[in-house]
């Protein structure tokens, strides 16, 4: 199993000298199996360069196939899709997956992005064959040789975590999520942090506990967990209602799941390269006590990992 990082940023792309090393493109990770199954998780701006790379091989002649798993449809997870070159070549086969919604189907949500007046090329002009598949929380299915499992995350409008197993290895992708403690996110707008007196209801507590244990199960024994670590502890105190985690949350989940390696991911737009270095160093230091066996890396554009065989 090969894993390549193409975009590691949250919220919006941040070009410039401060983000040159880790990269300023939004969320996108590629997972490929030894047998050649190609799975792309999230379609932030990082997918543009990957698409150009794919066009050097079978996608150029319209003979490529890829599966795109979308964690949720916030901009930073879909905004690269209209710039994914393989879409515009007839013959390519693209399968797009995301959580099923009550109100709107996946195709129409993604169509909105490329409809007038936002983008000049509507979906029906994309020449590739595009198929959509909607997933329920907890779904498990196969993409060729890869087993995919899903779990619900705690994020505004609800996001999906994925775990992919193939070639004797397992990777879990958890963006975006808040910790499972302070706020239960759903579809309603949350304007600010919860007031100190407003306690979570018993049933919300239970829902969050269940959600967390399902995420831990999803990460069970994973060789790599890619986890939303957008906030510092101080930032989380100020904006818990934005729906993102701290590195310590990621370490706890990995520890409970017995995962081998954690990749910090989905950095806040303000986080400079030097600050990511510092976050990595302090996370490693703290984890020496709390999760001594866990290997910790910081995701960056161009990070290329081989797990299991192949």
């Amino acid at each position: 199993m090969r894993i390549q990082f193409w975009g590691v940023r949250g919220s919006l792309p941040v070009p410039g000298p401060r983000t040159e090393r880790y990269g300023g493109n939004t969320s996108c990770v590629e997972v490929s199996s030894a047998a050649g199954t190609r799975i792309i998780i999230d379609a932030g701006t990082g997918i543009r360069r990957m698409g150009k790379e794919l066009m050097r091989a079978e996608f150029e002649s319209g003979k490529g196939a890829a599966h795109i798993l979308i964690s949720h449809t916030h901009w930073d997870h879909i905004q690269g899709l209209p710039f994914f070159a393989p879409f515009y070549r007839a013959g390519n086969k693209l399968f797009v997956y995301a959580r099923q919604r009550d109100d709107q189907n996946l195709r129409s949500v993604l169509s909105l992005q490329v409809d007038s007046p936002f983008f000049p090329v509507p979906f029906h002009k994309a020449r590739a064959e595009v198929a959509f598949r909607e997933l329920h929380d907890g779904a498990q299915f196969e993409i060729n040789d890869v087993v995919v499992s899903c779990a619900r995350l705690n994020h505004p409008y609800i996001a999906t975590a994925y775990a992919l197993s193939v070639d004797g290895a397992k990777v879990a992708y958890i963006a975006d999520t808040a910790p499972f403690t302070d706020i239960l996110f759903g579809h309603e707008f949350i304007a600010g942090p919860p007031s100190p007196r407003s306690l979570l209801s018993k049933s919300d507590h239970k829902t969050l506990r269940t959600m967390r244990s399902q995420v831990v199960r999803l990460c069970e024994g994973a060789d790599l967990v890619i986890y939303d670590t957008m906030f510092t502890p101080e930032e989380y105190r100020q904006t818990p209602h934005f729906g993102h985690s701290r590195p310590s949350d990621a370490v706890e989940i990995c520890h409970d799941a017995g995962a081998r390696m954690l990749a910090l991911y989905h950095y806040a737009p303000d986080r400079s390269d030097a600050e990511v270095d510092a976050v990595l160093a302090s996370t490693r230091k703290e984890a020496k006590l709390t999760a001594p066996k866990l290997d910790i890396v910081a995701g960056f554009e161009g990070l290329d990992l081989a797990l299991g065989k192949g």
């Binding site: 941040v14 070009p15 300023g24 701006t45 710039f83």
Partner: peptide
């Protein structure tokens, strides 16, 4: 100063990718 889509990376640092 960029068109179409932000283009972060070492190749656009001087003029900017926003």
């Amino acid at each position: 100063v960029r068109g179409s889509i932000p283009s972060p990376g070492p190749g656009t640092v001087r003029y900017g990718g926003n």
